[in-house]
Amino acid sequence: MAFLDLSHLEKSFGATRVVKDFDLSIEKGEFVSFLGPSGCGKTTVLRMVAGFEKPTTGTIRIDGRDVTRLKPNQRNIGMVFQAYALFPNLTVAQNVGFGPKVAGMAKAEIGERVEEMLKLIGLPDLGDRFPWQLSGGQQQRVALARALAVRPQVLLLDEPLSALDAKIRVSLREEIRALQKELGITTIFVTHDQEEALSMSDRVVVMHEGKAAQVGSPFEIYTWPKTRFVASFVGTLNLLEGEVIDAGRMRLDGIEVPVARGLDGRGTGEPVTVALRPEAVSLGLNGSGLAGTVESVAFLGAVVRTRVKLGRQTITLDSFNQTATRPPEPGAPVRLMFGADDLLVLGED
């Protein structure tokens, strides 16, 4: 049995169903990210796990115990908020010691726990400071230490990096992941940033309109998106419309291209949407491949993004910026090459 089990969770606010028949099993020590756009229900699911929202239907089990109707303070769950939520009237040490104090731990034991947690987050000397005397990154670290100080069964992170600047975000997400692995704590991380979700998680749940559109490892989610929504939300993507020739081929703007998988069971002439990652396409000036015309070239530093007109459709492709090869000029005739494996046949959302 899974350590954290969400079964048929539903949540409605008035007539609006925000979460629809949501199922998920998370193993002990697993790091799972909920990824999706605003309003997709990811935070609502997290808040139901925390106990801040009561599910309309469904059950939440932690380590086999049904906690669906338990109050938030009875669940032994640690939570880190986007807005830090440190108590402004308490020092860093008092903030971290708040949970152990509520739990009735002895004063000496609380002191030891606080010291241990502050060391864990790399701020052993800031115990006497108030939250307003810390930077955003430091405050979020303290919030993490405070959540971990109660030794929670599950750690919930509600967009904890959103309020931080880009550099700190990257370093802190690495720290969070390292801490999570070190402590082996089951963690749910809510984010709308695909890079965060893909780089930190054991599994990613891509959410769309209150449902889990796809659950899988970051590699699976990125490489084999199951639906048009997942494909378009995770990474940049070309969506191409064509029609089926047979189980291994399709026609794209009158040109026959091989497709490795996904066309089984589809009839000849049936319309089909395929996705193609920009980095899967390579550019040649002559030889084989699909003939197109360069529409625009955008220089993004390490990457050059080229848009190529291919019949009625436009394909975006990314290539590394190499000093030996100059990017093509707009209007130049080019050839596009990609493998049969790179065309992903998408299901309906």
Binding site: A50, G51, F52, K71, P72, N73, N76, I77, G78, M79, F81, A83, A85, L86, F87, N89, F98, G99, V102, A103, A143, R146, A147, V150, L156
Partner: peptide
């Protein structure tokens, strides 16, 4: 709201939240 939820997630009840937060 967030301070209340933070305190609740740390195990505090209403009385303690009002008095200490």
């Amino acid at each position: 709201a967030t301070l209340t939820e933070a305190a609740q997630s740390l195990g505090a009840g209403w009385g303690r939240i009002l008095a200490t937060v």
